[in-house]
Every structure is written in C-alpha cells, then in structure tokens.
Amino acid sequence: MNTPVIDTRALRKQFGRTLAVADLSVSVAPGEVFGFLGPNGAGKTTSIKMLLGLVAPTSGSATVLGAPLGDRAIRARIGFLPEHFRFHDCLTARELLRFHGRLYGMRGMPLDVRIDELLARVDMLDAADRPLRGYSKGMLQRAGLAQALLSEPELVFLDEPTSGLDPLGRLLVRDILSDLRERGTTVFLNSHLLGEVEATCDRVAFVKKGRVVYELDLARPTSGVLVEMRLSPIDACLIEGLARFGTDVTRSSADLIQMRVADDAVLPELSRWIVERGAALYSLSGRRKSLEEWFVEVMGEDQRPG
C-alpha cells in the first residue's frame, strides 16, 4: 500500500479554553481528491493550518508527505489557497505570482513561462497586469488558485476555493481539480458547496465539533439505492414480498412505497416481480443518497441553524 500523503493521529488544538480541533485522525492516499466537510466552526480551517505548520497542535502527531508537521523543505511540494485569498493589492497578478515563485526558489525564464501558463489556466491573462485592488472577489480567488499551483505541488490544500466564484468560475475550478487528479496531485479540499465536493472528490470526511465522525468513499458508495415506487393495490403480502429485495420498506401514502436496495441491478427484477404479481406499477425510480442527505444525517438536526 502507498504511504499516505497525509496521516494524522489524534491531532488536537486548543486555544485557551476553546477547543478548535478535538481529534483529527485521517489518512489521505496519494492522488486522492479528499473532501473535508463540516459546519461552520467545526475546526476545518484550523485543521488545514495545523497540517501546513501555521498552527502548532496541542497534542497528537501527523505526517505530511512523509515529514513531520512544519517541515520547511516539504512546503516546497505543497500548494495552499486560503479562504478569502488576499495579498498586497498594489501588486498585479503577474507580480504576485513572480513574488511567490521566488519564495519557492523559482527564477528567470522557467518562472515566467509557468506564470503565463497558470494565468491562462485560471483565465486571467487579460487582467494579469492590473493591480489586485481592482479585482473582483472571484478574480482574487483565481489569482490565489494560480499561486497555489505555482510550484506544481504534489499536495494542494484548497480552503473554500469556489467561495466568491460565479458558476463559470466554479466550473473552471472543477476542471482544474480534474487536471490535478489526472496528474496524480493529491488535493485536500475544504468546501461548503456539497455539490462541488460530490462532483470532484473521491472520498470525504465529515467533521463535527472538531472530530472526524464519518468517512465516505464517493467512488464506492456503500449506502445502496433509495427506491420510490407508485403502485396499487398495496397489501401486507406485497410489503412482505418486497422485503426480499431490500430493506427499510416503508408505505409513505396510499400508493407510494419507499425502500432501500443494494444496487441498481436489483431494479429490473423488482419491477418484474411486482408486475407478475398482478399489481399496477405506475412509476419506479432509484437514486443514491446525495452528499447533502449524508451531511444532514451525519451532522444531525442539531447542527442546523435556527
């Protein structure tokens, strides 16, 4: 098995009396696009900061790219886009990237070529020589994304990368994430936009009150398929018979039944059985549980605002 790119054991961070992260124990494999989900104040940003060496953990241990937290040389192989990216607004995007490139030890022509490549990738060539102070929130975020990718990092931390982006900007980020996956770059993505996470991540961890409470493999979902069907007549024998195909059979109304089956492959056999039994089948649809439903289920109703 490949050595994890990120491996944390009971990482904990306390600011005075405030417990920001209670127990962060996650493992991220090389090339994985890993989503880090949780409500506001769950400790997501503090977790990223600990992994980047910006905040020292109170206890616990971790390695990033095989090195202990805060290792300076390893940071050359890491890219980071903070939430609400800001930089000296008198600089242009090109100057910003040149400056950050120098901090990575890049110089001369290779740096200039890389800058042009990235400006084109984030669709910023037209605005590259204008000061950041004139940029919209979305443009700043895209400039920040370019600086995170400057050194062609092996691991990228993205803290709310689509915050402030319009739908086209979000598509652009999704494309970039797809490119990163193809190149084998590991991505640690912190986002509130569950649709984005669902579309891009291989695996997600749910964080609640500073603790990882559940991990979900989006590439191999284990939750089965939720089936909803309209049919009649519905009697006890029918419900008993349906239980052979799956679990959680529930009659929601006079002609509506919901149940869970293991896989889509069960659906043709299920519909055939209903029809052969002489019942009238008006509709039958199967869908997987959305990430949003997972989120609400894992976090619980108590995490809802209001």
């Binding site: 980047l52 903070p82 930089f87």
Partner: peptide
Amino acid sequence: VMQTLASKP
C-alpha cells in the same frame, strides 16, 4: 496575507 507567505518553504 501572512498565512499565504508563511506556508511557503
């Protein structure tokens, strides 16, 4: 701004 700077090598 500092978080971006300090995350560099």
